[in-house]
Design a protein around this nucleic acid. Sequence first.
DNA 1: GTCTATACTAGGATAGAC
DNA 2: GTCTATCCTAGTATAGAC
Lengths: 210, 210
Amino acid sequence: MTTSAVASSDLSPRKRRFREQMHQAREDAIVQAVNRLLAEKGFESMTVDEVAYEVGIAKASLYKHFPSKEHLAAAAMVRILEQTLAHLDGLDDALPPLDKLKSVTQWAMRVHLRGEMPLLPSENSSLRATLMGHQAYLDLLIQVSDRLGEWIEQAQANASLHSGLPPIVVLYTLFARACDPVLGFMKASGQFSDEQIVTLVLSTCFDGLT
Amino acid sequence: MTTSAVASSDLSPRKRRFREQMHQAREDAIVQAVNRLLAEKGFESMTVDEVAYEVGIAKASLYKHFPSKEHLAAAAMVRILEQTLAHLDGLDDALPPLDKLKSVTQWAMRVHLRGEMPLLPSENSSLRATLMGHQAYLDLLIQVSDRLGEWIEQAQANASLHSGLPPIVVLYTLFARACDPVLGFMKASGQFSDEQIVTLVLSTCFDGLT
DNA sequence: GTCTATACTAGGATAGAC
DNA sequence: GTCTATCCTAGTATAGAC
């Protein structure tokens, strides 16, 4: 019996759990770093070296956890979608659907302004391929879309949302607001507080410019 | 006297003009290719090799015209800003300011949908440095911003545009609509014609979702 | 100012020891 | 599963002939 076999399977249940927790904690740290770097520089400008440096481990160790840069990005997307879903779950069910939609949008904009919204290029094809083959990502994306889709239809039914717009257009518009470069421009201008930005952009999104 | 001196300065005025036209035509071809590739893949994913291949010249020849990849991108931005300015100049001066703003926005969205809107990452720092040092680019950006800014203030004065919004927020919002990923999403969904997309997004932008 | 050929570097990924 | 050291490709940029 090899030492590695001893290390991996001859441990007490308590020690095994401890190992798994350590493992999980490290992966969380990795994904969090990836998330931050994606928010700051985007996928192409983020380097795996930076990720490794930020986490404080060797690059080769990263690749034991995730097989490619694309999978790192996918993990960050899974993380943000899980957080989104958690936010949706936390909303008071009694709220009118329009208010729920506004609440998610506000939450997403705040995440963005905190520098924690991972931004992916829609063009990059190797990244797209990985995402489209990533079951957990796809499942979460569908879950979030379905939840929002329901609220959109309810809001259109009670006329609080313009019913001439195809629901998918509303959905895309809300998704896009979470990544809107306008948030960054306004922040960079230094003329507005984060909460002012949220208020103003929420208003342009739902009420329009006119 | 060297042959290169002969080639460059001992020509008749007619031949000199011809040379300059050829030179200009080639640069136009380069910038047009850059523009298209920036629209398709963005700055980081565009390679200088591709540009050279698309234009049909050697990569080294590109570098005789433009000193760096960043300068290629800057030239594409100058080009699109010139076209924007041309569109602004072409508008009927009698139009209400709000209609002028809508017209530019529509025009920009159509350019985007045709795959001719160069998309630059706001994060990339070497690119930012080049742009901020590029006088022609800065001048044009200011010209466009000023023209739009006037119309925004006029539209707010005659109450056709919501006057609670700082003009700069309206300006950023209009700029962002030209690059909005929503356009790409809707096009990719295959459910809408380009003109439907323009109409729908123009509506969400000016009238809001509610 | 165009070409071919090449220099140089960044960055994604892996080998192999422990 | 962590490390150090290395591989290797892609991609920006240049040298030097014509």
